[in-house]
Nucleic acid binder design. Structure first.
Lengths: 352, 352
DNA sequence: CCGCGAATTGAAACCGTTTTGGATGCGCAC
DNA sequence: GTGCGCATCCAAAACGGTTTCAATTCGCGG
């Protein structure tokens, strides 16, 4: 059942039927009702392919995923981000199209999205420092929104990001307030923008209290269980081992916990741990009582917001770049407790 | 730059240019070369929207993801499956479109995919027992392929699946051969088809050795760290606790390990653990020496295969349903060791 | 020299919508 | 009665390709 058939069935022209269905004002209310009713009765769905061609819009948003050596980093949070964004797209009648391409084909993938008219806009994932994709997308001239930010990029662009620096700064302060002095940082790979910012937050917090930085207490690697375990193990075996950890993800946090427990220590009592929790639907940080104390920010919400912002940009391409900085909550769980300083007499705890 | 412009620039008709580019035989070789060169020079990309309308094909495959209460189950493996499938789509010039919809809108989502012409076929994820979506897709008349199988469904359908029953049967036998008699099953939710089959494998292996089933040693829940921990803890606290576990996923395996280590036991020495490993790119089971002994089957490969099969079905809609059963490997890691039986004199170990 | 088939090209229809640019009829003010 | 504005509808032209059907040219056998 297509528009023309529906029109003849109604004794109307396709023009009128189209206008009636799309809510144009120049059609008689009674006609409109008749059309609507007939459309529903024959359950007519307009052919998307024709709409796209006629309107010149793709009614779709693209996500390019390089099949990269290192894209594992994105993966765990990817599903949730997609879920949030996809929800928004569906609600607005947009399709979400995902291009999984070999690393070296990423640029071409973006170009094709534009030149073949497959997508009206794209979301850029996992930005790195000086990310070359941002100038690229500018050059191509396709509306886009970045999930995260790219340190070092001068060109303007719209983004949504978690305040990673602030989150890790607060987490560090929290540990310091608890009396911890030696705090290990188990960070993600530091060419990723978010990891750089988290490190900055950690460094700033220590500096603000006049505490020295110890390179031995700062590690950076993929956020897997194994690498979390390794980093924590190494630090725990130091002569002056840390009494607390700041860990970049839930998964690496589980590795850190393993290292701790393997040494007969108890997390939350002997060693404090704070993780960053993306609030993934399949990886909940406990129930009402969180297992880990965490800086939490829902990546699914971020996806929703990102999609909304991008649709806004698509609708109004000329506008100013928009930014949205999401604050992470500090969730107190069972993995943190007082540190050595809180017991030393004469040392007053810092004010919060 | 569109076809018509390119044609005038070449002094040819759009017809000829189209044919030249699409490899039709009735065009002079020298003309074809001229056209190809010009197309490359002006880097002409045919407009996908127009192609779709003209050919009546969507050149896209749909994945419907219900934003469900329980779809967490799919999530962790979803990213990898998608990566595999998406790779295949890209190579074949197909788009992957994902519809994230509220639970109750799932049926409508499939109908729309067909009636609005957005997709040429769909992949059905995470089938349950008597899954109603299989008759639905039949009724709609859209080519589809199921990742997994649906016990209880009589209608024919194409699928790709891991031999879950056999994998868990072998794993159980392996533990039995090691001398374990009391083996705990930490399964996924048993309305999911794969969980049913795994349980069957476990049950069959025990039955084959004439061993009794103990309901207290069989649990079923979501595959999270916490529920793995809970299930293992409960069993370990039984008067007659198990000496080995069969666990449905890497994540719940990490929970089980925590329960074990929390009790001062060592995995691989005191308690054996076998998990199922989907070989997720962001969740590797160790490096050269796997941490967990595991039944392993790459879900990314499954995605690749699924996509290829589906494209085949789309190209040849009349054909017979195709099936592909993937065997899981048994990977020996550090989490398994001899059980109590292997020490009892007079009890010969079973043959493998 | 004519006719025929093969090779090569093109004109025009088509895919199913939207959108432009009228048409038509009617009421109403002058 | 004429002109004008308004409400309502429609024919036809897009959109950018593919595909059908026909035209043209050329070589060659009879």
């Amino acid at each position: 059942m297509n528009l023309k058939e529906l029109a003849t069935k109604l004794g109307l022209s396709p023009t009128t039927v189209s206008r009636a269905l799309n809510g144009y004002p120049e059609v008689n209310e009674s006609t409109r009702e008749r059309v609507m009713a007939a459309a529903k009765r024959h359950n007519y769905r307009p052919n998307t392919r024709a709409i796209r061609l006629a309107t010149g819009r793709a009614l779709a948003v693209g996500h390019v995923i390089p099949l990269a050596t290192r894209h594992e980093i994105v993966n765990p949070i990817f599903a949730d981000f997609i879920a949030g964004a996809g929800e928004t797209y569906s609600r607005n009648g947009y399709d979400m199209i995902m291009s999984v391409v070999p690393d070296e084909a990423e640029e071409q993938a973006y170009r094709d999205l534009k030149s073949r008219g497959t997508a009206d806009g794209v979301i850029l994932h996992a930005p790195r420092m000086n990310d070359p994709r941002i100038p690229l997308l500018h050059e191509i001239g396709i509306p886009f929104l970045v999930h995260g930010r790219a340190t070092g990029t001068e060109l303007p662009y719209s983004w949504v990001d978690v305040n990673n620096r602030r989150a890790f700064q607060r987490a560090t302060e929290f540990l310091l307030d608890l009396g911890h002095i030696r705090i290990g940082l188990v960070n993600g790979l530091e060419f990723m923008d978010f990891a750089i910012r988290r490190r900055t937050g950690y460094v700033d917090a220590l500096a603000a209290r006049g505490l020295p930085l110890d390179p031995a207490l700062m590690s950076s690697d993929e956020m897997t269980e194994v690498s979390g375990y390794r980093a924590a193990s190494t630090m725990l075996d130091l002569p002056e081992s840390p009494t607390a950890f700041l860990v970049a993800s839930m998964i690496s946090g589980m590795g850190a916990r393993r290292a701790i427990e393997e040494r007969g220590l108890k997390m939350g009592r002997d060693i404090s741990v704070i993780i960053h929790d993306d609030d993934l639907s399949y990886m909940k940080n406990g129930g009402d009582v969180p297992i880990f104390t965490a800086t939490r920010s829902s990546v699914r919400d971020a996806g929703r917001i990102a999609a909304e912002m991008l649709l806004g940009i698509i609708a109004n391409p000329g506008g100013q770049p928009e930014h949205r900085l999401l604050e992470a909550e500090l969730i107190i769980g069972q993995s943190t407790g007082p540190g050595p300083r809180s017991f030393s007499p004469g040392t007053a705890p810092h004010k919060v």
